[in-house]
């Protein structure tokens, strides 16, 4: 069986962690993702921007108790990419 190339956007520990959290919830705020992934603010911010640029994640800015708050949700394209990524790592695991 041929090995499909892995999606470079998702084949990164933090970006994959973010997408894995978002695939199991409807939406999550930046602080929640920070807690779940254990990443630093700067790194998480950079990786979310990359996911947004790839069209995998939708970012909504809003205000919560007068402070800016960032909500993230997976787009349909992001869900498809995640499913494709899971399919493409399966042959490696079954080797």
């Amino acid at each position: 069986m041929a090995f499909a190339p892995l999606d470079p956007v998702l084949h990164n520990q933090l970006r994959l962690a973010v997408v894995s959290v978002l695939v199991s919830v409807e939406e999550a705020d930046f602080t929640f993702l920070l807690e779940r992934t254990g990443a630093t603010r700067g790194n998480l911010s950079v990786q979310i921007t990359k996911l947004k640029e790839a069209g995998y994640v939708q970012v909504k800015k809003r205000f919560k108790d007068n402070y800016p708050n960032t909500m993230c949700a997976l787009t349909p394209k992001g869900v498809q990419a995640f499913e494709a990524y899971v399919r493409s790592i399966k042959p490696y695991l079954e080797r």
């Binding site: 520990q13 994959l16 894995s20 959290v21 779940r36 992934t37 990524y85």
Partner: peptide, 20 residues
């Protein structure tokens, strides 16, 4: 930066989904 093995990828996915 992309130095994860498929097993590590699966572990990341499973851990994050279980938490959320």
């Amino acid at each position: 930066e992309n130095d994860m093995t498929p097993t590590q990828s699966l572990k990341v996915i499973e851990e994050m989904i279980a938490q959320a």
